[in-house]
Design a protein around this nucleic acid. Structure first.
Length: 505
RNA sequence: GCAGCUGUAGCUCAGUUGGUUAGAGCGCCUGACUGUGGAUCAGGAGGUCGGUGGUUCGAGUCCACCCAGCUGUACCA
């Protein structure tokens, strides 16, 4: 292959919107998943796994009036011509699974699952085309207790991950309330579906754009700082006023202590009670809040937030959004908000697409990747690199079998250990390697030690500390900091002592 | 998708009104030190200047298009 000239060489490159993940990040993810899993198990949920690929029609993602999948999903055609897609969330595949195994599953069916999902969208900071979600769902229960439980479990999971109460909030709203408000400003019915969407999207932007931004989007439209113009909903003044009244019920998350969810629900009833839909939504909200509060989850954890709009396509009742409320400055000193790290709601229509009978369902999804970035910033994840293996160095290449035996002795004692497999010619490189691997210590046995029946154990962590005080190379080499000899048969014991010394430091 | 900004070594960046062989710091490799990590010193490798085309005697520099990144915005199951 030497004939391949340089300009023709394949360039190693990662596709955009995707990320490689190293040892430290994987360890942090594993720890997070285990914590979340423990909470979900505690609530009685059981694991289930479905594949990353589904028939596109099962995901419900064909473009309207075309036999081609939506561009936001990665899709390809099977050899029989059927469209397949990578899953873009874990909810639609679960609906397919439950529908397909309906007769054998216990109902209500409580399950959780974790996995990568894929979205073919423009990536951004903290926004990838492949990312991990951790879902829990209850299928087959229409009870508000199932919804309340989702919110409580989400709150428990976030706290188990080390996010203090008050630094997050589970926001709750109800699609029926939103639809009722639309109805009461004369945007009910099929004919107004388009404008309704525009208005709901405007409401959703309260957090980001503030009340004035929402007002602009409800009216003529809004110009952003790059000069780009977003068309508005062109509502009449009276309609805008009503919508803004509604949005104003939002309690700022930072002042949540003492906020009373019931006050908000009452205000909703008073302002929009003319709509039967809004009344029914308010009742559902109240039922959820009652159950949550009875279990001790007050508005500092589960908060009624009228501006929450999500999953316009399939959520039918309660909707939830887990939001981090603390702010963090980035390296340029600008505030970074992590915002939503999870969401969910009731999707009574989703399983029913596959079944003759309606099947109620509710669920919650944690965005693991984004949450991990937030926890990193919070300092809640082990920032320290993982401790590496003990490295047994190679002094005489004829004696590799001896060194390998030492490695096996360490492994047999449950100590993570490895033989140096690189070129042993330059001994310094072996130590540099061990240093890069973050090894706690190395084992050395040259001819001198062998003759005495000893091994040298070099404590790299102590040695690094000692190095700071040493200036000259002669001294550095002469003192051999943090290195000691033990009889061969005490190898395992001595290594164990070094490990123990650093375990509690 | 739309708008604005930015692409020079692995990383962070210099590079004059267009002018000869494109530089620095950090990192990497080698040596001083053939039995020891760090520091220091010396040396070395590493660039189609994001890509293609154009203007010009001459382009890293100017123009067009494309690609990628950043920011905002739209969409977001």
């Amino acid at each position: 292959m030497s004939s391949i000239s340089k300009p023709n060489r394949l360039k190693a490159r990662l596709p955009r919107g995707l990320a490689d993940r190293g040892a430290a990040e994987l360890a942090a993810t594993r720890e997070m998943l285990e914590t979340i899993r423990r909470v979900y198990e505690l609530y009685g949920f059981e694991p289930v796994e479905t594949p990353a690929i589904e028939y596109t029609d099962a995901l419900g993602k064909f473009l309207p009036d075309q036999d081609r999948p939506n561009e936001g999903v990665f899709s390809f055609q099977d050899d029989d011509g059927q469209w397949l897609s990578l899953r873009y969330d874990l909810t639609a595949p679960l609906a397919r699974y439950v529908a397909e195994n309906f007769d054998t599953l216990p109902k209500p069916y409580r399950s959780y699952r974790v996995g990568y999902v894929f979205r073919n969208e423009k990536p951004g900071p903290g926004r990838f085309r492949q990312f991990m979600q951790f879902d829990a769902d209850t299928v087959g229960s229409a009870s508000p207790a199932a919804d309340a439980e989702m919110c409580m479990m989400a709150a428990d999971a976030l706290e188990a991950l080390g996010i203090p109460r008050g630094d997050y909030v589970i926001k709750v709203n109800n699609r029926k309330v939103l639809d009722g408000v639309m109805e009461s400003i004369g945007l009910g019915g099929e004919a107004n579906a388009g404008r309704r969407l525009t208005v709901l999207r405007a409401i959703d932007k309260l957090d980001r754009l503030g009340i004035e931004g929402v007002r602009a989007l409800l009216g003529e439209g809004r110009k952003d700082e790059s000069g780009d113009f977003t068309k508005g909903a062109h509502l009449a003044e009276g309609q805008i006023a009503r919508v803004l009244t509604y949005v104003d019920f939002q309690i700022p998350a930072s002042e949540e202590t003492g906020a009373d969810n019931r006050t908000v629900i009452e205000a909703l009833r008073k302002a929009f009670g003319d709509s039967a839909l809004a009344r029914s939504g308010a009742d559902e909200l109240e039922a959820l809040v009652d159950l949550a509060e009875a279990a001790g989850y007050d508005a500092d954890r589960i908060l009624v937030a009228p501006s929450v709009v999500r999953g316009l396509e399939y959520y039918t009742g309660p909707v939830f959004e887990a939001e981090l409320t603390f702010e963090i400055k980035d390296e340029k000193g600008r505030p970074v908000r992590f915002g939503s790290v999870g969401g969910g709601g009731r999707y009574d229509g989703l399983v029913g697409r596959f079944r003759p009978e309606p099947v109620p369902a509710t669920g919650f999804s944690i965005g693991v990747s984004r949450l991990q970035a937030a926890l990193q910033a919070l300092g809640k994840l082990g920032a320290a690199a993982e401790r590496g293996p003990v490295v047994v160095t190679v002094f005489d290449r004829e004696r590799i079998a001896d060194y390998q035996r030492m490695v096996q002795a360490l492994r047999a004692a449950g100590i993570r250990a490895e033989l140096y497999l690189g070129n042993p010619r330059n001994f310094g490189n072996q130590l540099k390697y061990a240093d890069k691997r973050n090894s706690p210590c190395v084992v050395i046995q040259g001819a001198d030690e062998k003759a005495r029946g000893e091994v040298q154990i070099k404590d790299l962590i102590e040695g690094a500390k000692a190095a700071a005080a040493i200036a000259s190379n002669q001294e550095w080499r002469g003192t051999r900091p943090a290195q000691f000899a033990v009889p061969e048969d005490r190898l395992v014991e001595a290594v164990r002592e070094v490990l123990a010394r650093h375990a509690q430091g």
